[in-house]
Simulated scan of single mutants.
Amino acid sequence: MIEFLVAVLFLLITPGPGVLTTAGIGAAYGFRAGLGFIWGLMLGGFINMMIIISGLAALVLAIPSLRAVLLIASLCYLLYLAWRIASAGAKIGFAPANTPLGFKNGLMLQFINPKAYVVGTTLFSGFVFLPDNPVLEIVLKLVFFNLIWMPVHLVWLAFGAKIGSLNLSHRRQRAINVAMAFALIVVVCIALWTSL
């Protein structure tokens, strides 16, 4: 189980569309404005995991042409997001919306978030610690996952809110942009590696 918890932590702290959007809301509108979005992400993530656990995701992804289209679209989206972050110039590389994204947007993002499928599949198929009681194992994985997931997303929201309140130099803003873009490219590589 320790390996599962370590994997959850490292998979969740890697920036993906969910945490970057969360940080963007924090940067643009403050901490409180992002809480509804986080609740939507959490429910969407739970539904996403149920799709993975039930095998529905495996059925859909078993169709080679559909799998290829979904993989290419997801990877292109992540690369595009990394490019937008790295090329943001003097602005911090979060992409805030014109109005705060709320619960509904957080919920819907999890269905198109390729990282959510990679993380869910990796965690629920790669770490078996109760082979004689798979139902209890799934429940424990869901509980422990969310006990780590929620603080990680709250930290990203707080990070975005803090960044939004600072007056950083152009060089520091650019360094943050490049570091976040690099993290997204790592997510792309993980997605590609796990899909092969």
Rank of each mutant, 00 (worst) to 15 (best):
M1A: 11
E3D: 15
V8A: 14
L9W: 15
L12F: 05
I13E: 11
G16N: 06
G18M: 09
G18N: 15
T22W: 01
T22P: 05
T22D: 06
A23T: 04
I25C: 07
A27C: 09
F31A: 08
A33D: 03
G34Y: 09
G34W: 09
L35W: 09
I38R: 06
G40E: 08
L41I: 06
L43D: 08
L43F: 07
G44S: 03
G44E: 01
G45H: 05
I47Y: 05
N48H: 11
M49N: 14
M49E: 08
M50Y: 05
M50I: 08
I51S: 15
I52A: 07
S54I: 07
L56E: 01
L56C: 03
S65H: 07
S65I: 09
S65D: 08
L66Q: 00
A68W: 06
A68V: 04
L71W: 01
I72L: 10
A73H: 06
Y77E: 05
A82R: 00
W83P: 04
I85F: 06
G89P: 03
A90T: 14
K91C: 01
F94E: 02
F94N: 01
A95E: 12
P96V: 06
P96H: 00
N98P: 15
T99H: 15
L101I: 09
G102V: 02
F103A: 07
K104E: 12
N105C: 03
L107G: 09
L107C: 06
L107M: 10
L107V: 01
L107F: 14
L109R: 08
L109D: 04
L109P: 04
I112G: 12
I112A: 13
N113H: 05
P114F: 06
P114Y: 08
K115C: 02
K115P: 03
V118K: 05
V119C: 12
V119D: 12
T121M: 11
G126K: 09
F127V: 04
L130N: 07
P131G: 03
D132I: 11
P134R: 03
V135K: 03
L136R: 02
E137A: 11
L142G: 14
V143D: 14
V143A: 14
V143W: 13
L147I: 07
I148V: 12
I148L: 13
W149L: 13
W149C: 09
M150E: 05
P151G: 01
P151V: 00
V152T: 11
L154R: 00
V155Y: 10
V155W: 14
W156I: 08
L157C: 01
L157E: 00
F159V: 08
G160I: 12
G160V: 10
G160H: 06
A161P: 07
A161E: 09
K162C: 14
K162Q: 15
G164E: 04
N167R: 13
L168Q: 13
S169H: 10
R171D: 15
R171W: 14
Q173I: 07
Q173D: 09
R174Y: 08
R174V: 11
R174E: 10
A175M: 12
I176M: 01
I176P: 00
I176S: 02
V178A: 07
A179S: 08
F182G: 11
A183Y: 04
L184S: 01
I185G: 00
V186N: 00
V187L: 11
V188F: 09
C189R: 09
C189F: 14
I190Y: 12
A191R: 05
A191C: 14
L192N: 10
L192V: 10
W193D: 02
T194G: 02
S195H: 05
L196F: 13
L196A: 14
